[in-house]
Amino acid sequence: MLTTAPYLRTRRPSPTTAEFIVSTLPPMTVPLRLALGAIYFLRLVAALGILLLLFSAWTQDSYSYSTPLTTAAVEPPLFSVAYIQHLLRLLLTSRPGSLFPFIASAIPPWILVPASLGALYSLSLRIGNEERLLVLRGLGVQTSTGGRTVFHPLQTRFIPTENVGDVLVNEAFRGFGVRHYLVVVVRGEDRLVVVFPKLLPRLDDVVRVLEGARECLYGGGGGEKNGHVEKGKMTTVQSTQRCQSQ
Results as ranks from 00 to 15, higher is better:
L117C: 04
L36Y: 12
K225R: 07
N129E: 04
L8V: 07
T24I: 08
A46S: 15
K225G: 15
E215A: 14
P15L: 01
S122V: 13
V184T: 00
Y218A: 15
Y218G: 03
Y7I: 10
L168Y: 00
D204C: 02
M28I: 06
L199M: 03
N163S: 11
L87P: 07
T156I: 02
G49N: 02
K233P: 08
F158H: 11
E130M: 01
L210D: 02
R242E: 07
A72N: 05
Q244E: 14
L123H: 03
V178N: 05
H152S: 11
P114A: 05
R191D: 07
S245C: 12
L168R: 15
E162W: 13
S144R: 08
T24N: 06
P27N: 12
P26A: 02
P109K: 05
L182E: 01
M1F: 06
S23A: 06
S122D: 15
S105K: 08
A18I: 13
G118V: 14
R202W: 09
E171R: 05
L78N: 10
E19A: 10
Q155Y: 14
R208Q: 08
P68T: 08
L44N: 10
L133F: 02
R148F: 13
V22R: 00
F158D: 07
A35Y: 00
K198G: 02
V207W: 00
T145W: 04
G175V: 04
S105I: 03
G175R: 07
T93D: 13
A5D: 14
L32M: 10
T235K: 07
V229P: 09
F151D: 09
S239L: 12
L210R: 15
V150K: 02
I159H: 01
L87N: 11
F151M: 11
V30Q: 12
R89P: 05
R242Y: 09
L139A: 13
P15M: 03
Y121K: 06
R95S: 10
S94C: 06
V164C: 15
I111H: 13
A57T: 04
I103H: 09
T4L: 00
C216G: 05
A115R: 06
Q85V: 02
S144W: 01
F176K: 10
H86P: 12
V135P: 04
L199A: 03
N226C: 15
I127Q: 00
A46V: 12
L117W: 06
G97L: 01
L192K: 13
V30P: 07
P13L: 06
S56D: 01
P114F: 13
D190L: 11
I111A: 05
R174D: 05
V194C: 07
G188R: 01
V209K: 07
L8K: 06
T145K: 09
F100I: 12
P197R: 01
D166M: 02
G146Q: 10
Y40D: 12
T67Q: 04
G118M: 15
T156V: 12
R9F: 01
W110L: 08
A72S: 01
R157L: 10
L69R: 03
F41P: 15
T24A: 11
L42Y: 08
V113A: 15
A5G: 03
G146L: 14
C216H: 00
T29H: 05
T17L: 09
S66E: 14
K233T: 09
L112A: 03
A5Q: 14
P68Y: 03
Y40A: 04
L32W: 11
V74Y: 09
V209H: 06
V183Q: 00
G220C: 02
I39N: 00
L120Y: 10
K198T: 05
V22P: 03
S14C: 13
V30T: 12
